[in-house]
């Protein structure tokens, strides 16, 4: 399996990458870790005429705290998110999601920016980032803008990125103390991609009552979905197993998953409630 040939440019800066994107238009693709793009190119499902490699652009990887936000460079590989002390202590659900993507080798090479820009509905990061209310920094030729998750993930493999924009940074609000995050996933037995997954952020008051909750479900449609009914059921309630179970039971409301070779739509709707419960329970147990 060999990709069709292409022209290769290693961009030296984000500005250069945006210029090149503008120049080549639809014939160009950005290359980060390549773990979504290269497999598609090998199967000749994608045959871009030009690849603009971001791998040598300085400053695009790394995790740091920026005020009340965790800033993750778009070229940060999954393994670094999974092992980051910052992520593990402040946003364990994010580290958890990173740690269950693909396999060791994939996590050593695949990047968070590449994953979210690809917007595969069976990917892990979009789900947790939706629950965490992350935003995405997009750099175009004429400026930069920041887009919130619900406005970023638009459809199957479709994001808010304009053709000449580069995703440079993922910004995740650091939850206040007393909150917990978690991610739970049913992986496909062959591909390891998401069959169904759930991400949760719960914020508690000192008495343990839920002040707010964000629950996102993956694998149930063209993009991650917030489980609004579940969130509403948690609001203001003590986070007992019964409350969590009752809330999680509503996690599939409003979803319309498709049956596939592995799992029926019914199974997905059912299993989403199971994983939502797990994610909420784990999040609620985290300090």
């Amino acid at each position: 399996m060999f990709p069709a040939n292409f022209g290769y440019v290693a961009a030296r800066s984000v500005e250069e990458a945006t210029e090149l994107l503008a120049k080549y238009g639809e014939e160009a693709k950005l290359l980060a870790g390549g773990h979504s793009l290269i497999p598609a190119m090998k199967l000749r499902l994608a045959s871009p005429r030009h690849l603009i490699d971001l791998g040598r652009v300085p400053g695009l990887s790394g995790i740091k705290v920026d005020g009340e936000t965790l800033s993750i460079g778009a070229l940060t590989v999954h393994a670094d998110v999974a092992s980051s002390d910052l992520a593990r202590h402040r946003l364990p659900g994010l580290a958890e999601a990173a740690s269950v993507i693909g396999d060791v080798q994939v996590r050593n090479r695949g990047t968070i920016g590449g994953s979210v820009a690809h917007a595969d509905p069976a990917a892990d990061f979009p789900v947790i980032l939706t629950a965490l209310d992350a935003s995405f920094v997009l750099q175009g030729r004429f400026g930069r803008r920041t887009v919130a998750a619900p406005d970023f993930f638009l459809d199957f493999y479709t994001t808010a990125l304009a053709p000449d924009e580069v995703l440079t940074e993922i910004r995740v609000p650091l939850p206040s103390s007393g909150s917990g995050t978690a991610y739970a996933k049913l992986p496909h037995p062959a591909s390891g991609y998401v069959v169904v997954s759930a991400a949760a952020l719960v914020v508690r008051d000192p008495s343990g009552r839920c002040v707010s909750a964000a629950v996102a479900i993956g694998g149930m449609g063209s993009r991650p979905q917030r489980a609004a009914a579940t969130e509403a059921s948690l609001h203001g309630q003590p986070l007992t197993p019964e409350v969590i179970a009752a809330a999680a039971a509503k996690a599939s409301e409003g979803t319309d998953p498709e049956s596939d070779l592995y799992a029926s739509a019914d199974y997905k709707r059912h299993i989403a409630t199971v994983y939502a419960r797990q994610a909420i329970e784990t999040a609620a147990s985290r300090k």
Binding site: H188, P189, A190, S191, L261, Y262
Partner: peptide, 23 residues
Amino acid sequence: FREQMLYGDDGEALTGSLMNYAV
């Protein structure tokens, strides 16, 4: 527990790679 090569009624191979055939 996991392996099965599936074909559609018309003979289309549905599990033609390690992305959907689970070893």
